[in-house]
Design a protein around this nucleic acid. Sequence first.
DNA 1: TAGTGGTCTAGACCACAAT
DNA 2: TTGTGGTCTAGACCACTAC
Lengths: 264, 264
Amino acid sequence: MDLPELESARGWPVHQQIAAALRSAIDAGSYPPGGRVPGENAIMKRYGVARWTARQALAELSAAGYIRTVPKVGTFVCGEQHLVRTPRRYRRGTRSAPFVTDARDAGLRAEVEARSEVVSALAGIAERLSVSVDTPVMRTQYRFLAGGRPVQASVSYEPHAAIAGTPIEYPERGEHAGAGVVARYDAIGVHIDHVSEEVTQRPPRGTEADDLDVPRGAHVFLIHRTFTSKGRPIETADIVIPSDRYSLLYSFPIPDEDDEPTAT
Amino acid sequence: MDLPELESARGWPVHQQIAAALRSAIDAGSYPPGGRVPGENAIMKRYGVARWTARQALAELSAAGYIRTVPKVGTFVCGEQHLVRTPRRYRRGTRSAPFVTDARDAGLRAEVEARSEVVSALAGIAERLSVSVDTPVMRTQYRFLAGGRPVQASVSYEPHAAIAGTPIEYPERGEHAGAGVVARYDAIGVHIDHVSEEVTQRPPRGTEADDLDVPRGAHVFLIHRTFTSKGRPIETADIVIPSDRYSLLYSFPIPDEDDEPTAT
DNA sequence: TAGTGGTCTAGACCACAAT
DNA sequence: TTGTGGTCTAGACCACTAC
């Protein structure tokens, strides 16, 4: 317990002072990555504060990705394992999905689970795919694991008519299983030439916190991705990524003045 | 006070039940956007819970962007004003900065404050600009307002040698004030052809919460952007954006197999 | 069995705004 | 003045984990 005293008796809230003390102790290396950090009870004793105060301090560091609190086990320093998601890898000719390459770059073993079924398009998806409501679409639910831990989940939608009876009908089966969307459609002669991704961010919902192992207070990225070929939507997906262990890297050319705008 | 009873007496934590009740009341339109929502004290009375429990319920909705709690004033439903940041607009030939166009699209008046000075490059910036430490760089601090409210802040760095004595030396002065980076450098014959943005996300730090008017529990996007010309870094910036009122839209072509990789 | 964090109660004082 | 949310105390019970 080498937490420093709280000096600054200014008007600062106590929980912020404690959070600052703990943060600098971690930065100084007093608590090595993966190691145990004083938990609620320890902080209550150390500083003579109530549980609420201790928890507020820990919640602040937890949201910032400094620590991770495991219910009934303890509180630990987060190692800085940082995966980078690289949509630039949506390039043609890559055999494996972009995710697999990203994970290997980080030195992690990658696994992908997928499960497909044909469903009727709801309004939102129908609009994104430019089809009418109730059109049959192939819905595929993915779960991506790196180093044994889940790091990404997504739900993909493709108009069924475009792939029915082709070798890529079921994304998780056959010769093209595990390939990225661009490579899969290349296999049936559909040349995907554009992607658009809308990035937002929010706390985990429903079972996302459990499924993706999102620590308390941390948020997830939500990406709405649509692939198009000559302006026509080919596939759209909702991608959920825990933001505490991922960053998103976008790298692309600056279009010239005379380029035509593309669909949103 | 038309909050429903809590039916589900299952093992669910009370604060989650209250949050769910309040959320559905908002979704159902019981509390119109901008209107007042039951605060901590009201929830304590309505459901007979302690302040901590009430606050946890409100914190959940606040982090999700449903409500905004203004200290000592009250708790209010967030209107869904959604700005879209569109780096696709880094196109050549646009007179005004991309931000201004984004804000106008949302029907808001845009203002930009900027302040420049020459400083010595610290290690991180020096690396991103491929210059040595202590090289003089022009640092510009921006603050962007839409409809009178701050919605974006950034710090930009450019090697001073490249712009010293040119009409674009001070980004906020002269004929090219208010132009985007691409247009400014076009003015001195430097053709920026590529941009890379790394997106992360975290709670607001220091004065960011106040400066950008980030509600309690909400997070900000942090973008590290670098413009390059023929692979050589021209400008790099750290951009901070409140994520509760912004989404990021990336739209770009899929490179072909034989394209060369670009610098990270 | 001892320790952990998760949840919750029942109070309290404060500064500030009056959406 | 009244009501608001911000902060805090001092307890409590629980389920689960680690040893």
